[in-house]
Write a protein that binds this DNA or RNA. Structure first.
Lengths: 246, 246
DNA sequence: CGGCCGTTTGACGCGGGTCAAGTGATGTGG
DNA sequence: CCACATCACTTGACCCGCGTCAAACGGCCG
């Protein structure tokens, strides 16, 4: 898996040109890098946690466990992603966050958000925009879980992971490494590992994808995306309304 | 269905005391009330729409249609709810918004958000908080669709609707009127109308609920909530980090 | 070499979908 | 005020996609 040092500022810089003061304000959020090892539980579903985080490097996931022990993976995190924003509402994490690879994250206090709100209205507005993008993506997944077939869900997961990794500045080609076990894929899209396997094989037999080791090759991405109705939500942004930067 | 004139300001006032200036700023968002009739399509999934909205009165829903004609209801809206925030990111609506009852909504321009960001950092922070609450609720629904039984989903929908209506200031008792057809319930939780019916009857036979006309009585709400692992996400907020109001 | 974890594949069962028929309620035009 | 249409709700019979269980298989690491 290739890595690019893609911080929060780099992500935002893709949308708009930041002022020096804004860049400095964002840098404050990444002052305390903390390396974590693959498999480590960073936040627990029950635990109190007033901190917010930025991913500096690596891959993590957020999931919830149901009473019967089943797991629903809620979100995957890559370099430049913000997480645990729910600390702003509850002072606790509603889900568990685990590192799927060795990773580096930076914690910052909620008061930093208050400071952003006061000093950098444009950055605060961008936070709201990021939130909206994620909300729409989550909504797409909701519709996928509620109303689409297993085959469609698996294909959509591959397309979405690739888009997210590209967004994080990783150099994904038509071939890339999802970096998940089939059980994890299933837990992300509401299927069993066994059935994920069957669908991957089916997609392979259809010639839509190829697999070797952990890598996946999307043979006809266009057609696959059209078939399953996949939309890249990182495209088509309109930020013309933002207040001026400070 | 009882109605209380619950605006955005009243909703926020439940969490914190607003300053006069903040109240005035919020009132600006509700200056253009617009009555809409039951069944009317307010926003279309494809259409451009740069406006945001507050619900002043009534009930609406947001849904997406899939290629095969199936529908996934994404969210229900009540008095005091903000919607179409995704206009901030895309300048268009990713879903269709329809009035389920006669309703009144107030549109406001994206520039009002820019103004809020500049002049009222605490209100802008609260917007972020509201977003987080909704994100967590959406996440709960995601886990429900991916990993729980039909019975659990139906029961959870009833509990969640009631919590949301109470939050909107409607006087819901142990008995209340969901105001949805069984087909709409199914489209919200990924089931067919037929199966929703079967589950409602089962819950009734178990003595968990009773029904008469459109009304539903939750006989043992405590036990039902425990059984299906329902959590009211409007409770347990911690807003101590907010910047001072202006 | 041996154990473990992830993958693969097959056989079988079940929860929920599909189809279809029937029952009220509401509404609407004559 | 009635005849008829419509729409939501019910209920039963049947089917299928996906879950479950079980048994290999293969690669990696100690």
């Amino acid at each position: 898996m290739s890595v690019s040092n893609c911080g929060l500022a780099d992500r935002l810089e893709c949308w708009i040109a930041l002022t020096p003061a804004e860049r400095r304000a964002l840098a404050r959020l990444e002052e305390k890098p903390r390396p974590i090892r693959r498999g480590m539980v960073l936040l627990d579903e029950r635990g109190r946690s007033e901190d917010l985080f930025v991913v500096r490097d690596g891959m993590l996931m957020c999931y919830v466990l149901l009473d019967d022990g089943r797991r629903q993976i809620v979100r995957f995190l890559f370099s430049g992603d913000l997480f645990s924003l729910s600390a702003l509402a509850y002072g606790r994490s509603p889900d568990t966050v685990v590192a799927m690879s060795n990773a580096t994250v930076c914690a910052f206090d909620r008061s930093e958000v208050a400071r952003l709100a006061t000093d950098h209205p444009r950055l605060m507005s961008l936070l709201l925009v990021l939130n909206q993008i994620e909300r729409v993506i989550t909504t797409d997944r909701l519709a996928g879980l509620g109303r689409t077939s297993a085959r469609t869900r698996v294909a959509t997961l591959l397309l979405a992971l690739r888009a997210q990794m590209r967004q994080a500045g990783m150099d994904v080609d038509t071939a890339f490494s999802p970096g998940l076990t089939q059980e994890e894929m299933g837990d992300a899209i509401g299927l069993t590992a066994v059935h994920v396997n069957r669908m991957l094989r089916q997609l392979e037999e259809e010639g839509m994808i190829a697999r070797e080791g952990g890598r996946v090759i999307l043979h006809d991405e266009e057609r696959l995306a059209r078939q399953v109705g996949y939309v890249d939500r990182y495209e088509g942004l309109d930020l013309s309304w933002l207040p001026p930067g400070r």
